[in-house]
């Protein structure tokens, strides 16, 4: 594998977006790019990552390779990333380490790190990324982040309901309750403020607040978030990158007894 990002912060943002959710991950590299999935220790949150060749300045993968890494270690190396530097990932045919080369031609500087790869036994799950959903919402990731931060302070359970009137996020704590209603809008001046809802039926689902606080860490990937909900299935929270691919979080719901 030889894969070069023209801006090293792209890879840093991707890794930082889920490094607190899961401890380790297998990156599966092939001609069609880098794909990964990992489940958190409590098996409630599934992270999926897709980095297609279009995200790279140059991308070459001669034979399919799996790269297992501890995310805490990789995140440490990526602290060196900045918008002036490119980052090339190299893995040899017999992979036992990942080489990261940061280059800042303007500053006549380069940095080289090596990361030991780890053997991770993890099942790949059959996830249909085009899964049909009852409700799809596209909204500002900034707005979503703020709503999650504000409401999750009040309760460890977070409810999402969508009707024709809009999307309602609500919490019911022991001492306080809160509700945020967002209605579809079109901001011609700033398209990232738009909120659109497409739905075939209403939904009303509850999730554990702590996972939503993990998910919003990915908001730096995109100023938009796509939400997909269906009755009694995991919700999908997806951040798509400008050049294709992105990071998705499948969150299993809570159910009422």
């Amino acid at each position: 594998l030889e894969a070069k990002f023209d801006d090293s912060t792209i890879f840093k943002k991707i890794i930082d977006s889920f490094k607190d959710s899961v401890t380790q991950i297998n990156f599966v590299c092939s001609e069609s790019g880098i794909e990964a999935q990992a489940i958190d220790d409590s098996r409630v949150l599934l992270v999926t990552v897709s980095i297609p060749p279009s995200c790279f300045e140059s991308y070459r993968c001669d034979r399919p390779t799996t790269i297992g890494v501890y995310l805490a270690s990789l995140a440490k190396l990526l602290k060196s990333a900045n918008t002036n530097s490119s980052l090339t990932l190299y893995v040899a045919d017999k992979p036992d380490e990942l080489l990261l080369l940061f280059e800042e031609p303007k500053n006549q500087k380069s940095m080289e790190y090596k990361l030991k790869l780890v053997d991770i036994t993890a099942d790949m799950l059959e996830v249909d990324s085009d899964m049909k959903s009852d409700v799809t919402v596209e909204m500002s990731s900034v707005e979503f982040t703020k709503t999650v931060r504000d409401l999750t302070q009040l309760s460890d359970s977070f409810t999402v309901s969508v009707t024709k009137d809009g999307i309602v996020f609500s919490v019911q704590g022991d001492t306080a309750q809160g509700k945020v209603l967002l209605q579809p809008r079109e901001d011609l001046a700033d398209e990232s403020n738009n909120l659109s809802i497409s739905m075939s039926k209403t939904i009303d689902l509850s999730f554990a607040s702590k996972y939503l606080l993990d998910i919003i860490k990915a908001a730096s990937i995109s100023n938009k978030i796509f939400l997909k909900f269906s009755d009694d299935t995991p919700a999908l929270f997806e951040f798509k990158m400008e050049k294709g691919g992105g990071v998705g979080f499948y969150l299993a719901p809570k159910y009422d007894d």
Binding site: L125, A252, K254
Partner: peptide, 14 residues
């Protein structure tokens, strides 16, 4: 009282 579902309840291993 709410109960937490697991990802494994919904997705099968490839």
């Amino acid at each position: 009282k709410s109960n937490q579902r697991s990802i494994g309840d919904f997705f099968t291993v490839k």
